[in-house]
Design a protein around this nucleic acid. Sequence first.
RNA 1: AGUCUCGUAGCUCAGUUGGUUAGAGCGCUACACUGAUAAUGUAGAGGUCUCCAGUUCAAAUCUGGACGGGACUACCA
Length: 1143
Amino acid sequence: MSKYKEFKGLNMPSIEEGVLDIWKKDKVFEQSVRNRDGREPFVFYEGPPSANGMPGIHHVISRTLKDLVCRYKTMQGYQVRRKAGWDTHGLPVELGVEKELGITKEDIGKKITVEEYNRKCREAVMRYKQQWEDITEKMGYWVDMSDPYITFDNKYIETLWWALKTLYNKDLLYKSVSIQPYSPAAGTGLSSHELNQPGTYKDVKDTTVVAMFRVRAASESEGVNAKQEEIFAAARGAWAPFVQSPIGGGMLAIEQAAQVHFMAWTTTPWTLPSNCGLTVGPNIDYVLVQTFNPYTHKPANVILARALLGKYFKPEAQESDFALYTAESKLLPWKVIGEYKGSELEGLRYEQLLSFDGNTREIAGGDPWRVITGDFVTTEDGTGIVHTAPAFGADDYRVGKKHNIGILTMVDKEGKFNDYTGEFSGRYVKDYKNDPGYKDVDVDIAVKLKLEGKAFKVEKYEHTYPHCWRTDKPVIYYPLDAWFIRTTAVKDRMIELNKTINWKPKATGEGRFGNWLENMVDWNLSRSRFWGTPLPVWVSDDGLEIKCIGSIAELTDEIKKADKALGLNQYADMKAGEFGLPDSVDLHKPYVDKIVLVSDSGKSMTREPDLIDVWFDSGAMPYAQLHYPFEAHHERTLKHNFPADFIAEGVDQTRGWFYTLHALGVMLFDNVAYKTVVSNGLVLDKNGNKMSKRLGNVVDPFSTIEQYSADASRWYLITNASPWDSLRFDIEGIKEVQRKYFGTLYNTYQFFALYANVDGFTFKERYIPIDQRPEIDRWILSVLNTLVKDVTNYMNDYEPTQAGRAMEYFLDEQLSNWYVRLCRRRFWKGEYEHDKICAYQTLYECLETLSRLMAPIAPFFADWLFQNLECVAKRHECTSVHLADYPLADADAVDKDLEERMQMAQDISSLVLSLRKKVNIRVRQPLQKILVPVLDKHMQDQVQQIEELVKNEVNVKSIEYITDDEGFIKKKLKPNFKSLGARMGARMKAVAAAINGMNGQEIAMLEKEKNIALSVDGEQVNIGIEDVEIIAEDIPGWSVANKDNLTVALDITVTPELQDEGNARELVNRIQKIRKEAGLELTDRIAVEIEEYEPLKSAIIHFNDYICAEILADNIKLIPNMNGGTEVEINEAIIKVLISKNS
RNA sequence: AGUCUCGUAGCUCAGUUGGUUAGAGCGCUACACUGAUAAUGUAGAGGUCUCCAGUUCAAAUCUGGACGGGACUACCA
């Protein structure tokens, strides 16, 4: 006969190794998918990880989430294919390679060919593939890694090209110049979603300058307006009294003193050489202020917004004596000598602040160095006058273009000043190279301005500034040519369709994602890089004709066409060379760049050098993984794989993958790409800090799993907090899960196996109908079926946390702590017949059902448990829990009355135990009775049915029910605030007091008549029986305990008979201990000799049969003055006991 | 800077539509049990529900404000 496996101790990691072996050997995953052939598909997309970095613990949480949903749906009968994928393009790969080779972007094409570089990238892409596969397997994530989609694969790229061409044909792909976030360190523009990576914005301290732009005098500029004259006149007038006075330590010329400056603040002084204009708000009030330059101490007149005067000038120095000002003065005298609207200043010309060979008027084009107006100007900070460098700000570019002030770009793409910037030529504007000797060029510019009297204030200023998500270096805004996808054209549709997506949590979809859609801008696709999907766009040399290629076949045709028209031999050359058209193509750089096509009008065309954003790669994954539309039956295949029923990734993908999937789904197929999306939160360390390599607080998933098992980790990650809440990861939590949940489950199984093996229970008997089982069995099965229903609902709602917690409660509180504990005796006492078989069947069913319920979350342990049970009982046809069906709740097994009264049994027991504790009478000492006041017939019925359980549990002989008829109970009324409150309103307090003050007679009246009139504040108030809760609060003369409306009193009189019985039990207890210490088998029979001792004698005589039965003794001999034996203590008496095994 | 979100026991978290004694687990303390035994049970201590104001008969719960954490948006000179 086969037996249930018994174990020495719980070792989860070793259990998992064993289960993993079976999964591999039997190809359980493959089976679980193949078994569902022909069943309704449940479509899941795997967001491709990049195997370029090591997996971390945060990957484990999102993959657990994905895995458990897929396993759950599989067990529910869906076919869930899970195709793995690898994200292989992009900057991280490039940077990794550059680091490895010790080169920078500039070296590509010089020290190393593009071809070689890309070959290195291709090799580097899968650097950690082994570790990824390893963690995938060890954490129990079932995903098909045998045939993954790989984004650098030609077929994959071909689909991307198809998608791009489709967009092109819909006029959703276009080229434009724009000011974009650009990372000089990475040498590339950044898309908005890249800029929206968490951690991109950092606090930095920059040197800021309030620069002074000198207004040009009438003689210096044409088209002087009246306002300008007025300004100068005011300045002259203000300084006139000081002419030839010794202010500033010298003779003062009026024209010198009357110079006027615009004040403009910048946090990026390096953009000042590229300044082309000053922008004012047309409706903002500006003032002309007479003062001194704080650095040169020479007379100065400045213009700034009135609202910001307080930032630069102290009220106490207003109109103080200018004549007393010296270089040592603490306060700067100032006086408002003119006032103008922004619109009045428009058109004024000023002297270029810093002029070099490279920023002349000719180079700028347009008409630079004028005051212009812009709506975006505020008076929140700065001076209310905005230094405008069109090349380095989107607002600046727009307003500059509008007013034709030209553009100057004095910084090159590497982030350094160009060669025509005087002493600053060649200097990096930020430390992009990690140069230890780097000197902040902003500081030097500030110093120069100070010396030249062109700075009013220089200070450090802390603000947040965007950084490149990969290099961690500051981004700058830079004019770039780029290809865009016109996502704004489908904005409304994207918003509309988003409303049909089931977001978990909801707020992310409506809030974060919804807002993002509302504020969407066109998708900047272009990347100036080397390793990525090339943009399949060819442009004629004059830029007038464009061709977008949508497939390899089309490209081949076009090449042949070009060969013919232009007399080239590309096709043949390529076929012979690496490119190998049309079979084994490499669509990457540099090969595609060599291809020359011909335009319709016969001009030669070359490819746009850009690569595309890697997010396009992953966003097109639903189609590209199928090589759509280039395979047979592609429409049908797509129909079965699009859209996804479910995807899940970290919340950081909201503007990444979730967005690009959605955008492409809408633009290509006018459909959502996924119906449900779960975005899980961040994993923080136990102190709530973000995990980062820098802080050294990252948790290594490998060692965690090795040490504490995958299941305990998974269970912890899922049940500790909802997936979308951020999780404070604490290894102690995993230990707790292991001990509490899995330890309990293991013990329960061990308990079952131990006795089932003794009795030979293999579930060979007929399944005993539930109504023929004892109360407690029916109870646990009722609870079990309620659990099945709850868990199923939670799982359907993508609430695995609730599902897991429900299972924890069932296992700990109900199954282990109540059912098993109360039923222990049934398993080891008595014959193998009806009651015992009921117990085995019931416990078996609980364990087996639980194993299936928990299988999605804890796949290893569940399978281990399932197989341990099933290999003997064989109630299912399958060999693994993952091939089984998910349990279905049996509504007929649920009995709410039964669940309610069992709760009462637990409450009553708990109350009695606390009473015993109070008077210090141990449970082994039997007591005569407890009193339970019953408020109605139903309550009495309920308690009566669980009477036996309670009596056993608390060791009392009887339960007495008391009703009010006996006048025993002191009742109390608790007002029902909910029902009364609505009616009574402001009188509620008085009414409550009146109810609390009702005497026994009045309560009896209320119970009888169902309502009573009370006088409250002189008013009659009618109280119905439903307005109060009646509680039996006290039984005079007894010690009582209560919880809610349950009250229990305990009779603590220990009669001599009870004392004897208690002693007998003590004796049994001691002898059992001796048996155990002597190493006897459970079934060994013994003979017992006990020293005669008067106080215990009657107990032994009266309870002889009971004692013998309990300890398996044939008889007990009382020996006066016994020699030998073991001394035991019973109620403070010490006697000797000797047992011997009967053969 | 704005928006969202969170703030409950030493720790991790529950807390229904507002309803009068705010709960659990872990940890801690004490005890019990000893045929689940490296298991189990019971009890106890531990709270200004971040703070202030308001609405209400009644606020952990609703409103406003402050403070603190987190995320997001914007980058603004």
